[in-house]
Design a protein around this nucleic acid. Structure first.
Length: 564
RNA sequence: UGACCUGUGGUGUAACUGGCAACACGUCUGACUCUGGAUCAGAAGAGUUCAGGUUCGACCCCUGACAGGUCAACCA
């Protein structure tokens, strides 16, 4: 989608949120100011769904020359932690967005929120309630049955003021009293049935310490925080749609600047789960190795897997913004990834499942360095040397003793090209006498085809990758596959839950051979093992041991054909 | 059976606010190629949940069904 907003052209096909924004801009609303915010609760790690929200909020601000704040929604001290604050900041920055110095916390506004509450109490719009959580729940009614009003609903303003002050001073125990908005216990919208504004929690807050023992609820804190920050468009996910009347109610009753809340459908990806609770369960019960396990849809997981920020941003762009529930095909995410990696990755050769090949007519003890192109998509990436010798490894899949038609790789009597090296022809197959397994293959090479072309102009159908047995480096290679075998793991059958659909083969660890170039190369760079896939160094790599993560495979049209 | 929201190819989004549905992914052909990658060319696939209505004309407006989602935490 082209961004034409800046040159003032009317843009076609923009999503409904940008439509609203452009209308507001046209009508001169908010002095034509655009200000969004990304409001995570610091109680977990960010995932690809959050990435969409981040791209929407920061991206919208960028597009319309506005601002986007980072605001931690830290109103519940028992669930939140600084550990999460740091990871969230790191992830947003990695995606390439900046909140400059606008790093805010809902807890920054506790004082102001308290003042606002006083206003509401004085207006007779809020009261202190002595009900227990259970009583409250029982009196709330159901969506079809109206709730009952609390005994304490009609306390005097003075009494409410006094009680609320004493709540703040710590006179009461957790849960003993709450401050509630006085709205309508019969409202068809459950959120309007005298929602709790403040509850008593005697817990230390990660920022305000012991200053407060009453904490505002989300509904009471969020809109007012938006207002304080002069947010123009408060973008959130669909489940908050029914909260909007309450969002608007607080702001109107308090009498402060009114931002506009707009809801969109959260991102869902197939073959994975996205809920914080389920992700936490996978981590805690060790189905994965931590939040940054490369199989996780978390931003840190994707990062470790080898995803680039650009690919994720492009993905967020391309999936669109709408209000209907969606389940996006991971293939689209992977497409965005490959598209980006294809431009950036340094090509190297690595053999994951080695088969020994002896080139009988290649002189014993001889070796040579051959030229290889680092990235055919990017000439500036340059060239490198790859060592060649008499004994090499090729991929087991690249040899078949009895090949089907259209198999272009090595087979008895057939000639193929070793990438950047020579044409070789298979002359002999050596098998294990007992198991009948192929243990090595003998070939002859054509010295005139050095570099990969024969002067006589003859063609070969296949080009395969290889690695010199003498110079190759061993490496641990971690092959990842989708975490779940079911498209929608949330949709479980009777008596099962999402964990019953975990893919037992989501991680396979093997030892492969890679060209020596990788020993001393940039550890942060992305690589393509030619004909196999994209790989990156894992953080477990040490000077003694290289560890690679397979980010994503290359498209494999032969595999597709062979499967038929 | 309450309120609110949403229904367009397999998937996700469009359709200049009423002029007989477009793009991307995926799928399938074929070309090209020192990666069976990339690239290029092409094809199939929806008549817009359904039924009425308004209109010369409806994906778009109205009515009613049907289907899906969200909401009953002192969570966010």
């Amino acid at each position: 989608m082209e961004n034409t907003a800046k040159d003032g052209k009317i843009e076609k096909g923009i999503h409904f949120i940008h439509q609203i924004i452009e209308d507001d801009l046209k009508n001169g609303k908010n002095e034509k100011r655009i200000h969004t915010r990304f409001p995570p609760e610091p109680n977990g790690y960010l995932h690809i769904g959050h990435a969409k929200s981040i791209c929407l909020n920061f991206g919208t601000a960028e597009k319309y020359n506005g601002l986007c704040n980072l605001r931690f929604d830290d109103t519940n001290p028992v669930k939140e932690d600084v550990e999460y604050v740091d990871s969230i900041k790191e992830d947003i920055q990695w995606l390439g967005f900046s909140w400059d110095n606008r790093e805010y916390y809902a807890s920054d506004y506790f004082g102001k929120l308290y003042e606002y509450a006083l206003i509401l109490i004085k207006k007779g719009k809020a009261y202190v309630c002595d009900m227990t959580a259970e009583e409250m729940s029982n009196s709330r009614g159901t969506p079809t049955v109206p709730g009952k009003e609390s005994h304490w609903r009609n306390r005097s303003v003075e009494e409410n003021l006094d009680l609320f002050e004493r709540m703040r001073m710590g006179e009461f125990k957790d849960g003993e009293k709450t401050l509630r908005a006085k709205i309508d216990m019969a409202s068809p919208n459950m959120h309007m049935r005298d929602p709790v504004m403040y509850r008593i929690i005697n817990a230390r807050h990660h920022r305000t310490g012991d200053k407060w023992c009453i904490y505002p609820m989300y509904d009471y804190a969020h809109g007012q925080s938006d207002s304080v920050e002069s947010i123009t468009h408060s973008i959130c996910t669909l489940e908050f749609e029914v909260h909007r009347p309450l969002y608007d109610w607080f702001i109107k009753e308090i009498g402060i600047y009114a931002p506009r809340q707009i809801e969109f459908a959260r991102l869902n990806l197939n073959y994975t789960v996205m809920s914080k609770r389920k992700l936490l369960e996978l981590v805690k019960e060790k189905y994965v190795n931590g939040w940054d396990d490369p199989r996780m849809p978390t931003i840190c997981g994707l990062r470790r897997r080898g995803y680039t920020p650009e690919s994720i941003r492009n993905f967020a762009d391309i999936v669109g913004v709408a209000k209907r529930d969606n389940a996006i095909d991971v293939a689209l995410l992977e497409h965005c990834l490959r598209e980006d990696l294809n431009k950036k990755a340094i090509r190297v050769m690595g053999v994951l499942n080695p088969l020994k090949v002896v080139i009988d007519n290649y002189p014993e003890g001889k070796d040579e360095l051959l030229d290889a192109i680092n990235n055919p998509e990017d000439e500036s990436a340059g060239k490198r040397k790859v060592p060649f010798s008499k004994v090499i490894y090729i991929e087991k899949d690249d040899f078949m003793e009895n090949p089907p038609k259209k198999y272009f790789r090595l087979s008895p009597g057939n000639e193929v090209r070793l990438r950047y090296a020579y044409f070789i022809r298979c002359t002999q197959v050596v098998k294990d006498e007992k198991t009948d397994d192929i243990i090595e293959v003998h070939c002859t090479y054509d010295p005139a085809s050095k570099g990969g072309n024969s002067p006589d102009g003859r063609k070969v159908q296949g080009t395969i990758h290889w690695v010199s047995a003498e110079y190759a480096v061993k490496a641990e290679v971690r092959l990842y596959d989708r975490l779940f075998i079911k498209e929608n793991p949330d949709d479980s059958e009777e008596g099962k839950d999402f964990k019953d659909y975990l893919n037992p083969d989501s991680l396979r660890i093997i030892t492969g051979y890679v060209e020596p170039f990788l020993k001393n190369t940039d550890r942060d760079m992305k690589y393509q093992f030619e004909r196999i896939g994209y790989f990156c160094f894992d953080k477990d790599t040490s000077p003694e041991k290289l560890v690679f993560n397979r980010t994503v495979t290359l498209k494999d049209s032969w595999a597709k054909m062979a499967a038929k």
